[in-house]
Amino acid sequence: MDGGPGAVYDLIRREVAARANRLWDTAMTLHRDPESAYEEHRAAELLTSELTREGFRVDRGTAGLPTAFTAAAGSGRGPRVALLMEYDALPGLGHACGHNLIAAAGLGAALALRAALGDPEGSLLALGTPAEERGGGKATLVEAGAFDGVDAALMMHPGVHNWSWAPLTASSQVRVGFHGRAAHPTGNPTEGIDALGALIQLFNMLGVLHRRLAPGSHIQGIVTDGGRATNIVPEYAEGLFGIRGATTAALEALEGELRRCAEGTAAATGTEVTVERVGGRYEHFRDNPVLSGRFAGHLARAGIQLTEPEPGVYLGSSDMGNVSTGVPAIHPFIAIMDAADGSDHTPRFAAAAASSRGRRVLLAAAEALACTAADVLLRPEVGPQAWAALREKAAAGL
């Protein structure tokens, strides 16, 4: 495009501004009508309608997920950049993670960039990614090949910090079941093998293990089956354990520790044990400094300065980690309220996702995402630099 990168950025800014009210209306419609994981039918219809209206080719039901979609523009020859949208809400809390802003920002970036560039050389994708809060829609999309050939996967996340990337851990859930033998606790107690007692001993053992875990790693468990009656020695007891590790390798090591503790407990108590992962696994997030640096620079024009995360602080997990393992990716946090006022996954944060500050962040993020995507599509050096940075992190195990 004539006029150099600055002219493209200026045009993107004007295109975002021209759609500001529509984008905010989209965010507020999602906020008023929250839908939880895999149930986001109205959200997906709203977003795909907007994309179709402005000339994107839309395919619904990506990877067999009814509320996922892929919208595309461009020639298909050259770099491929994906702008990601999340739109699932939390049961009982609505958009207390701000996914309504994530969706509207990704939408705004896609619409503004296509309006600024027309159908660019390469591919501009807008991906609808359901079920981040529970189930891991992006993990399914990765496995189905939705990110194959993508050179940059871009999204933002509202938060209580202005951080250029997200310190997100790897996570999984593991079910542990102990099998014993029922008996009457007074009539024939010596014939019983107490499965619940074994499960309690596992919790005690994990409490000892917890003292030596590295920052970012933990095991949090609950009892999901503790028996049926107080006058029966429980023949079966079950616990569900959420495991996190600062890296995917740390998570795998911790899963192995849990298994060894469970097997040791079974041997000591005369029970039998089953250990199985429940659902998919979230990988740890690998920030791409080439792309996140460009995003931070673009966002600074709106007066929002991003910094590095605080050392040793971790903020949960996301299926965006699975994307970042194989594709250069960004996941910055942009504050819509102050950390002193609380955190996400709270009613106060849900209110912030519908606030005037939330609107300012939405529009600034949409512009910065679109400008970063333009860099990938128009600057030949950016894609190879981003891939080199990803390979370097992977080789270092980061």
Rank of each mutant, 00 (worst) to 15 (best):
A103P: 09
L117R: 02
A96E: 01
D88V: 06
E50Q: 12
A37Y: 12
G55F: 11
L117A: 05
H157N: 14
A152W: 00
A110Q: 03
E45W: 01
P91A: 13
A96W: 01
G135V: 11
A96H: 01
T67R: 11
F56Y: 12
G74A: 03
G159P: 09
L124Y: 08
A110F: 03
A82T: 06
A105M: 02
S49Q: 00
M156A: 04
A68M: 10
G64N: 14
A170I: 08
R114M: 08
D148V: 13
W163P: 00
T70A: 10
A126V: 09
A115H: 10
G137Q: 03
P66C: 08
S171P: 00
L117K: 04
R175F: 05
V160H: 02
E54D: 15
A110S: 11
P34C: 11
G61H: 15
R77A: 14
H99G: 00
A131L: 05
V58A: 14
A166Q: 06
A103E: 02
S49G: 08
L113K: 06
G122E: 00
G122H: 04
G136C: 04
A115V: 07
D148T: 15
G159T: 13
T62P: 12
V142A: 03
D119G: 06
A68Q: 07
T62L: 15
V142C: 04
V174T: 15
S49V: 00
T169D: 10
G128M: 06
C97Y: 06
R57A: 14
T169K: 15
E86L: 14
H157M: 15
V142M: 04
M156E: 10
A96P: 00
G64Q: 14
E45G: 12
F178L: 08
A153T: 08
L124T: 07
L47S: 01
W165S: 14
A105C: 05
R77I: 07
L125A: 08
F178E: 01
P91V: 10
V176F: 06
A96M: 02
A166S: 13
H161R: 11
A144D: 12
G94W: 12
E39F: 06
E39H: 14
T129Y: 05
V176H: 05
